[in-house]
């Protein structure tokens, strides 16, 4: 268990890194000069790759070759996607997917 000081240093590190990612472009690319073409290209295509990475990151500890074979996670994701394609309501999709997952790990795959 961390001490309170260590906890606050951890929080400060996370806050500082977040601030850095938000301020960096404004420090590097001055607004009076055009943004380089390569950076514009990355700005257009990086987001979709990064969101794909974040989904994989959330599933990194799921055991697909044993245990529950990742079934609760796959069902949770399928329900989230289906709800979202149907209603396009962010809150409904997230709440629905999470609820199904909770039912799965609490009642079905115990």
């Amino acid at each position: 268990m961390m001490t309170v000081t260590q906890q606050f240093l951890t929080i400060a590190a996370v806050a500082l890194a977040t601030i850095l990612t938000r301020f960096l472009p404004f420090l590097v690319f001055r607004s009076d000069r055009p943004t380089p073409k390569y950076i514009q290209y990355l700005g257009k295509h990086l987001p979709l790759s990064v969101f794909a990475l974040l989904i994989v990151y959330c599933l990194r500890n799921v055991e697909f070759t044993g245990g529950t074979f990742g079934v609760p996670e796959l069902i949770g994701i399928a329900v989230t996607v289906a709800l979202h394609l149907w209603k396009r309501q962010m809150i409904l999709s997230i709440a629905g997917g999470t609820l199904i997952y909770m039912v799965m790990v609490q009642a079905v795959f115990v």
């Binding site: 989904i55 599933l59 949770g76 994701i77 989230t80």
Partner: peptide
């Protein structure tokens, strides 16, 4: 799982 679900939606 709310986090996974949020990233899936985004």
């Amino acid at each position: 799982f709310v986090l996974t679900s949020m990233f899936v939606v985004i």
